[in-house]
C-alpha cells in the first residue's frame, strides 16, 4: 500500500509541524491549511469542471455560520449540527445549481455572485440569529465525549480535513466522474454525445465542492472563535479565484502552490509596502494570464523540462 503510506507520512509531517509552532504561528498555519482546502475544492469546480462560480467562499461562510448558530443558538450537539449544516449547504447549493447550471457560464457567474452578495446582506440583517454586522463571538468548541480539542491538536484536525479533501477530490478527478467534468468543460456537445448527462454532472460537481467548502467553514468557525460578515465578503472570493489561476487551474499541485503563495505573500510584503499587496496580486494575475496561463505549476513544468 504505497499510496496509503504516502498519505500517512504527509499527515504525520504536517501534524508534527503544528507542535513545533508557537500559538501565533499555529493560527497562521491553520488558516493556510484552510485556504489550501478551499483552493482544492475551488480548483475542482473552476479548473476541472470549468464552472465560473463566485459562491465557493460564501459556502465557506454558510458552513461557519450554520455550525455556530446550530450549536450555540439551536443547542444541537456538535455531530448533529455538522450533519444539519452540511444538509443545509447541499440544499442551498442545489437551489442555486439546478436552475443556473442549465444556463451558460456567464449566468452561473451572475447567479453565484448574487448568492454571495445576498449571503452578506442576510448576515448583516439577521438580527440576533446572525449577530448583525458584529457577527457572533464568545463561543468555543464544545467537548466531544469529554474531550476538548485545543491548541496544536485542533491544527491536526484541520490537517486531516485538508488531506481528506485532497484525497477525495484526487480520486474523483481520476475517475469517470472527473473525466466527465473535464469533458463538459471542454465540449458539452461532445460530452453529451458520449453519454454524459451534462446538467447532472454540473450540478453534482457544484453541490459536492460547495459542501466541502462548507465543512472547511465549520472548521474555521473554531479557529478565530468569531464569525462576522467582512470575513466572507467578495474580496476573499476573488482571492480564491486568483489562487487557483495563479497556481495553475485544473491541477491540485497548482491550487496548493497558488494558495500557499498568495496566503503567505502579504506576510512577506507587508513590512515592505504595507497594505498595497493587492496591487502585487493584480500584477501577478495579469502576468499569469499573459505569460503562463498554466500558472506556477506550468512554470515549474517548463523549468523542469528545460533542466532535463
Amino acid at each position: 500500500m504505497k499510496p496509503l503510506a504516502r498519505w500517512l507520512a504527509a499527515a504525520l509531517v504536517l501534524s508534527a509541524l503544528a507542535f513545533a509552532l508557537s500559538s501565533y504561528h499555529n493560527d497562521v498555519y491553520r488558516k493556510l491549511l484552510l485556504w489550501v482546502t478551499l483552493a482544492l475544492g475551488y480548483n475542482f469546480l473552476f479548473g476541472v469542471a470549468g464552472q465560473v462560480a463566485f459562491s465557493h467562499f460564501a459556502f465557506y461562510g454558510i458552513g461557519a455560520y450554520s455550525i455556530v448558530i446550530l450549536t450555540f443558538q439551536a443547542g444541537l450537539p456538535l455531530p448533529l449540527a455538522i450533519v444539519a449544516g452540511v444538509a443545509l449547504c447541499v440544499a442551498v447549493a442545489l437551489a442555486v445549481a439546478i436552475p443556473s447550471t442549465r444556463l451558460e457560464g456567464f449566468y452561473l457567474a451572475l447567479a453565484t455572485l448574487a448568492l454571495a452578495q445576498l449571503f452578506i446582506v442576510v448576515l448583516n440583517e439577521g438580527g440576533a440569529v446572525t449577530g448583525g454586522a458584529g457577527g457572533l463571538a464568545d463561543y468555543r468548541l464544545p467537548a466531544i465525549l469529554g474531550v476538548r480539542v485545543t491548541g496544536p491538536w485542533y491544527t491536526v484536525v484541520i490537517v486531516l480535513l485538508m488531506l481528506g479533501t485532497m484525497a477525495l477530490l484526487a480520486r474523483l478527478d481520476r475517475s469517470w466522474f472527473g473525466r466527465a467534468c473535464r469533458a463538459v468543460r471542454d465540449s458539452p456537445e461532445a460530452a453529451a454525445a458520449m453519454g454524459v448527462n451534462v446538467a447532472r454532472t454540473k450540478v453534482i460537481a457544484f453541490t459536492l465542492t460547495s459542501a466541502l467548502a462548507a465543512v472547511a467553514g465549520m472548521a474555521y468557525a473554531f479557529v478565530d472563535n468569531t464569525v462576522n460578515p467582512p470575513i466572507f465578503g467578495l474580496e476573499n472570493a476573488f482571492l480564491l479565484l486568483f489562487m487557483v489561476i495563479i497556481g495553475g487551474a485544473g491541477r491540485q499541485a497548482g491550487a496548493i502552490a497558488g494558495a500557499v503563495a498568495l496566503y503567505l505573500l502579504p506576510f512577506v510584503l507587508s513590512p515592505l509596502i504595507g497594505h498595497h499587496h493587492a496591487l502585487v496580486f493584480g500584477v501577478l494575475m495579469v502576468a499569469a494570464i499573459l505569460l503562463q496561463p498554466r500558472g506556477l505549476i506550468g512554470l515549474y513544468d517548463a523549468l523542469r523540462r528545460r533542466a532535463a
Binding site: 473525466r179 473535464r182 471542454d186 465540449s187 461532445a190 460530452a191
Partner: peptide, 12 residues
C-alpha cells in the same frame, strides 16, 4: 457519433 468539425476534449 463523431463530429464533422472535430470536437475532441482539448484539456485531456
Amino acid at each position: 457519433r463523431t463530429f464533422q468539425h472535430n470536437r475532441v476534449f482539448a484539456g485531456m
